[in-house]
Nucleic acid binder design. Structure first.
Length: 324
DNA sequence: GGAAGTCAAGTCTTA
DNA sequence: TAAGACTTGACTTCC
């Protein structure tokens, strides 16, 4: 990426050659905060297990239906605002992967197909990021089983939407259990031997801020042809030895490309004034800049508390995707 | 309508 | 040992 800064007419003028999509995660602050609250639009309606027991499985499934309907409204909003990339909330279908209370998403197939069609019509990329409970390297078999179920649930959702290879599922390496090398081997084995093909095809690994650096994951990723999502913020907190962000993204994007998937990476900034490690891990409300050395042709997920507003602010700063 | 307490799941770090 | 961080607060109860 090349950046030019000037101050013509006293207005900061920052330009970039970046031409990928900027996206945001899970929640649209404008639609979520609509008043009255009954008009709020969001995809993370959920419940408690007690409520499932009380109200029954169809009631939970109806929450998922509402979430999916609202996702279409969010996509429409994004299109009106020139945003064409977002992460779908893992809460779309509450408890769908639960061992006891789980359920198939086929009841919602027509609606999910509609969502996928809308996304395709607008060239809108949809991805997912299963949670921290997804531990493919756990020493406990039950945890690995639950993790695979969680991946299968996300994959079923994307498959029913008819979303292509760009609809990736991003997870972290997870815990190290006191032996990173042995855990990486377990992760490798689980990916290679235990994941259904459609799940493995969407799987992507991401460096995190405490355990696995990009350098830790790249050999495994290259070997198994599993792309790597590079998170710039995590890398500053937990740096990859011997590799610059530019070198990492080059290698990571090469795996994406040979898999026929558009590269995507993550970007966020720490809160202003954050000093301690805990503070620095937290995401800021907005981002002040795009990362240095950003390749032009990839998508970038902006992880910031202000969600779509952070994306729109970057549009303004860099003069991106402005209407003519 | 708002406040407080609670909620499926895992792991690690810091206070 | 408890709290807080992570991809994301939302639900439930009580006032």
């Amino acid at each position: 990426m090349s950046i030019e800064r000037g101050h013509a007419h006293g207005i900061p003028d920052v330009q970039t050659t970046f031409n990928g999509r900027l996206g945001y995660a899970c929640l649209n602050t404008v639609l979520r905060n609509k008043k009255p609250a009954s008009e709020a639009v969001f995809c993370s309606r959920t419940c408690r297990i007690n409520s499932i027991k009380k109200n029954g499985i169809d009631w939970v499934k109806n929450l998922g239906r509402k979430n999916a309907q609202d996702l279409m409204e969010i996509i429409e909003w994004n299109e009106r605002n020139n945003i064409r990339f977002m992460r779908i909330s893992s809460d779309m279908f509450p408890f769908a992967s639960h061992e006891t209370y789980g359920y198939s998403l086929t009841y919602c197939a027509p609606l999910l197909a509609q969502v996928g069609d809308l996304a395709k019509k607008y060239g809108h990329r949809l991805t997912v990021h299963p949670g921290q409970f997804t531990q493919l390297g756990s020493l406990r078999e039950g945890v690995v089983r639950s993790s695979i179920r969680e991946l299968e649930y996300h994959c079923e959702m994307l498959d029913l939407m008819g979303i292509g290879p760009d609809g990736v599922m991003v997870i972290h390496g997870g815990g190290v259990y006191g032996d990173k090398k042995a855990t990486l081997e377990r992760i490798r084995k689980t990916i290679r031997d235990d994941l259904p093909k459609n799940v493995r095809n969407r799987l992507v690994l991401e460096n995190d801020e405490v355990s696995y650096t990009a350098a830790d994951l790249l050999p495994l990723c290259a070997d198994l042809d599993v792309p790597l999502v590079f998170d710039y913020h995590h890398d500053t907190l937990n740096p990859s030895r011997g590799l610059t962000p530019a070198e990492i993204t080059e290698q990571a994007n090469a795996i994406f490309r040979r898999r026929g998937i558009k590269p995507k990476q993550h970007y966020s900034e720490p809160r202003e004034g954050a000093i301690s490690i805990m503070e620095r891990r937290a995401h800021s409300n907005r981002c002040q800049s795009l990362p240095a050395g950003l390749p032009d042709d990839m998508d970038l997920m902006i992880e910031a508390k202000d969600k779509e507003q952070a994306v729109l602010q970057l549009y303004r700063i860099y003069n991106l995707h402005r209407d003519p």
